[in-house]
């Protein structure tokens, strides 16, 4: 059977989730591989959720939030934009290709963008293949500072 990526999508309630809803209402076709978890704000996405998703066997994680400046909670997505780069470096340390973790902005009116991103991500993960986590992956010891 061909490889079907499992992708977890964390979508903020006000923009991206509404955008995904719009994609559905507008009958825009998109890959069924992204499994969506709704949070009130992309700022609610605890880094632990992302790591847990990879641990449970997700091949990719996509976090979607409102465009910068559009956040329903004023600045939640700024918190997200600062967390994600750290997290990418962290997953790299676990041997996970950082391309498997994406952060995107989708507004409530961008149903087409949502569908496009989902298709894009699915194709990218498909080309990367299934995620293989080595349980006893060696973690580089931090260099001692003087």
């Amino acid at each position: 059977m061909a490889f079907e990526p499992k992708i977890i999508g964390f979508l903020c309630n006000w923009c991206s989730y509404t955008g995904a809803d719009l994609a559905g209402v507008s009958r825009i076709k998109s890959a069924p591989n992204v499994r969506i978890i709704r949070t009130m704000c992309s700022g609610r996405v605890d880094p632990a959720f992302i790591l847990k998703a990879f641990q449970l066997g997700a091949d990719g994680v996509i976090v979607m939030g409102c465009h910068l400046g559009d956040c329903h909670y004023q600045e939640g997505n700024y918190k997200t934009i600062r967390r994600l780069p750290f997290l990418r470096r962290l997953v790299k340390g676990f041997g996970i290709d950082p391309r498997r973790l994406r952060l995107e902005w989708v507004s409530a009116s961008e149903g087409d963008k949502f569908a496009l991103l989902v298709n894009e991500m699915t194709e990218e993960i498909r080309s990367l293949g299934p995620l293989k986590l080595s349980v006893h992956h060696e973690i580089q010891q931090p260099v001692a500072h003087h």
Binding site: C15, C71, E110, G111
Partner: peptide, 15 residues
Amino acid sequence: RRLFSISKSPDGFFL
């Protein structure tokens, strides 16, 4: 829109 944290629909009007 940003002042009141409201969204817009694809046509650009308030959602």
